[in-house]
Simulated scan of single mutants.
Amino acid sequence: FFQDHVRAAMTCIRFFTHGAKSYTELGGKQMWLLNLKSNIAADLHNRQSQKATKIIFISMSSFERIFSLSRHINTVDLQMEVTKFLHQCESSGTSQMTDSSLPTLFGNNNMKMDVACKVILEGKNIEEGFGIAFRVLQDFQLEATEVYSKVAKQLVKQQKYSEIRQLLKCVNESGEAAKNDGDNIILSCLNEFKNIPAEDLDNLIQDMDSDENKIQAYMMCNKLRSAYLVSVRQEKARAVQLVQHVRQLAESSGDDVVRAICAQWL
């Protein structure tokens, strides 16, 4: 009997995703998600009822199964919210994603991370979809920094540099960010620094919290004078190491001005 609900649930997922080429199309197939939720809820109810009628030891696996079914219901609810949001984005014209993939929360973790990225990027601004994406990351315990870094790289490609700063603001305000998460997100997208206008690049680096990360960023972007200026503000022993490194980079790149400044300071 339980297997009937499982098969019905899998059928609903297949019908929901089959042949859809846009979230607008998925939005028109929400009835399959409602059917899916109904089947999972029926399975959950039957299992809970069965356990309640038996005055026996209930195994941990039984509790885990019931808990798992509850999580599946939460997944369906969240997928419905994701579908509604992305459908609205497509309908309003804010969607700018050009790939043809339609990731859903019924796939593996990589696909779930793609969902989170898509939700953040598709809204009229970063903040609009961040809350939904954050719940996806939390519910499935995904690598948040990896997702945020992927979003930042995409924003560089779209030349939306101010949106990267908005992303960092959202991450910091989420309450779940580790100390260097914001810095790591910026560092992850600096491989494309040649495509970032100088002013926007400086703004991003200056938004970093750690001087060490700022120095690393300036070095990555061949802004050796800026790297030198931050380096000399550190404690003496560390400053010497950093300035020596900057001098070596200046020598390698043929920047005689910065090399001379470093040599004079040392």
Rank of each mutant, 00 (worst) to 15 (best):
L69A: 00
R71C: 02
H72K: 10
H72P: 00
I73W: 01
N74I: 04
T75L: 09
T75V: 12
T75N: 12
T75E: 09
L78H: 02
Q79D: 04
Q79R: 05
M80S: 09
M80I: 06
E81F: 01
V82P: 00
T83A: 05
F85H: 02
L86G: 04
H87C: 08
H87R: 13
Q88V: 05
C89G: 02
C89Y: 02
S91K: 08
S91F: 05
S91Q: 14
S92L: 15
S92N: 15
T94W: 03
Q96I: 07
Q96H: 08
Q96S: 13
M97V: 09
M97S: 06
M97I: 11
T98S: 13
T98N: 11
S101W: 05
T104N: 14
L105Q: 08
G107H: 07
N108R: 03
N109Y: 06
M111R: 13
M113I: 09
M113N: 07
V115F: 08
A116P: 05
K118N: 11
L121S: 02
L121M: 14
E122M: 12
K124F: 10
N125V: 08
E127R: 10
G129W: 04
F130S: 06
G131C: 08
I132C: 00
I132V: 15
F134Y: 02
R135S: 06
L137N: 01
L137E: 03
Q138K: 15
D139P: 03
Q141K: 05
L142I: 07
L142W: 08
E143H: 08
A144W: 05
T145C: 14
E146W: 11
V147Q: 07
Y148M: 11
S149G: 14
S149P: 02
S149M: 07
K150A: 14
K150L: 12
V151G: 03
V151N: 01
A152D: 06
A152F: 08
K153H: 02
K153T: 08
Q154V: 14
V156C: 06
K157H: 08
K157E: 13
K157S: 13
K157V: 12
Q158E: 15
Q159F: 07
Q159E: 14
Q159K: 15
K160N: 10
Y161R: 10
S162P: 01
E163Q: 12
R165M: 15
L167Q: 05
L167C: 03
L168P: 01
K169T: 03
K169F: 10
K169E: 10
N172F: 01
E173Q: 09
S174D: 04
